[in-house]
Design a protein around this nucleic acid. Structure first.
Lengths: 139, 139
DNA sequence: CAGTATCCTATCGGATACTG
DNA sequence: CAGTATCCGATAGGATACTG
């Protein structure tokens, strides 16, 4: 029943299935940190508390809208604490919660991995790309 | 020059800037694992080598197109090895490279974090949401 | 200052049809 | 079996204008 001579045995009898859709828990947090600006915001706020405009200045290229949306998401997930000071002009401080700091520490492992292996990845990409552009060495 | 009475000192004099755009290295791999199917493919292939159709069956809801695109990306980044067996009907095996296994191990930390803290996240969301729907307790 | 509202576009990903 | 090609809708995100 099994195809021999292969490194992979294909007994697809065992029906091990994964939580394939959005109900997978890790998706929730992955969608959060993977969007364009969240990770940057978390990294900055882990250094110190910042105001809205300070964040805008430090994150080059972020639009006012997207910074607001990003902060709202992070606040909703309990990763960022928003503090409104009732003064004029208004002043709002953003800081990481303990949960946010904990997440940032965990993400740091991924950042470190990327720095360590970025050379391998770049090499793999070059290899893959040139293999497509010059299909010369066939023999 | 500084606004006193705040927990946050706002000396925005220090110009610590981040790599805000796509040239940030971690973005490369974050964009890879954060798309809809890559993480699932990596997780499955870390258990064992699989064929195209086997992956399709195990990943409920993935389209033929997106599975192909996902695998091509992972292959290009050197995370997945593609092996074509010259037989009819064609047979193609996919397996993680050592680099891919290494990445999956690193991601696992994030998965574990999510499982540990999903309760806190859910609680924060409920809290945030109900605070919007019932703005009653103001006093 | 710290947002919200509106509009618009680019990319992601699904459905379907076709092929070596 | 293992894809590719084409079309098409949904959504992320940018630009701009307005507000408490």
């Amino acid at each position: 029943m099994k195809s021999p001579g292969s490194a992979c045995d294909t007994d697809d009898g065992d029906p091990f299935q994964w939580d394939t859709r959005e109900d997978c828990e890790v998706r929730q947090i992955l969608d959060r940190i993977a969007d364009k600006w969240s990770l940057l915001v978390i990294a900055l706020l882990d250094q110190r508390c910042l105001r809205f405009t300070e964040l805008r200045r430090r994150i080059d290229g972020v639009s006012q809208r997207m910074l607001a949306v990003t902060l709202r998401h992070l606040e909703r997930d309990g990763l960022v604490k928003r503090t409104v000071h009732p003064v004029v002009p208004p002043r709002v401080d953003y800081e990481l919660t303990p949960l946010g700091r904990s997440l940032h520490a965990t993400i740091q492992a991924l950042v470190d991995w990327t720095e360590t292996h970025q050379g391998e990845i770049a090499a793999a990409r070059s290899n893959y790309d040139e293999r497509l552009t010059e299909p010369a060495a066939l023999t």
